[in-house]
Amino acid sequence: MKFTRKNILGIADLSREEIEGILETALMFSEVNTRAIKKVPTLRGRTVINVFFENSTRTRTSFELAGKRLSADVVNFTSSSSALSKGESLLDTAKNLAAMQPDILVCRHSCAGASHILARYLQSTSVINAGDGSHEHPSQALLDMMTVLKVRKKVDGLRVAIVGDISHSRVARSNIYCFQKMGASVSVVGPASMMPSAIKDLGVDVHYNLKQGIEGADIIMMLRIQMERIKQSPFPSLREYSRYFGLNLETIKTLKKDALIMHPGPVNRGVEIDPGIADGPYSVILDQVTNGVAVRMALLYLLSNAQSMNL
């Protein structure tokens, strides 16, 4: 595979071949992550800036670790320490960062399309979208895919159910694209008030009932209820949501024996998922976190290679 992209902005842009190439590379990096000395010199002298306009300790740490294990110089730039609070615009910030000549920017932003705008203005810097508003979170979908592939070897024909606030979820969008491209069929499950416009046109089945939605599913992906993103709540109370759309010990009895339960984290225990299930036998939630580092190493590595190629 030739990987020649300048940026990773969304799964929607990637071909199946590219997704497979990234995951193959990520699997190789898994080996590095099991060594006593978890570091290779590959990206020595390259600079990666994590530009996080929205807080996310977990994703940022994962990217930071990925960069450092490849020997890149990794700098974190978070909104609390940035000039954004002083009224500087995204583009001013971007231009200033670009003037420091980083090789790769990893961007998290609460506005959809922020990474696209950065990528358009930064001619010689690669941009990785680490989550933009309710749009996409490509590295999350790739690490989810890697987690499934490690257990199931093949994704073609699998049935995936994504449960929760589809409307506000970038994880849902990236995973819908990713699983579909890899040959799985995807259902989305939740109350209609949490479904975005014309969601069926993405080629998914829509279920408003949890039990029906997860019946026969090989993978159940529970989304985090993001109270902070919902001004007027699309459901009456957490208690009611949890009762009707949360995964509990009763509902998992109906699951297939080899079903996998995933969650992008952080888990609201007792809301979308029963405390016992997150740590239970179906759960691969911590594998997701482990694989996240390898996937992000692969992205940094492939983009660096592509940069060299495009010189």
Binding site: A12, A112, G113, D132, G133, S134, H135, E136, R170, R173, P196, S197, A198, I199, D201, L202, K231, Q232
Partner: peptide, 21 residues
């Protein structure tokens, strides 16, 4: 309008932007 930024449609769903229905 719910502070939407573009038409509410399959496009707003794809782009992750809040829709003005």
């Amino acid at each position: 309008a719910n502070n939407g930024h573009m038409n509410a449609s399959i496009m707003s769903t794809k782009l992750g932007l809040k829709g003005l229905p």
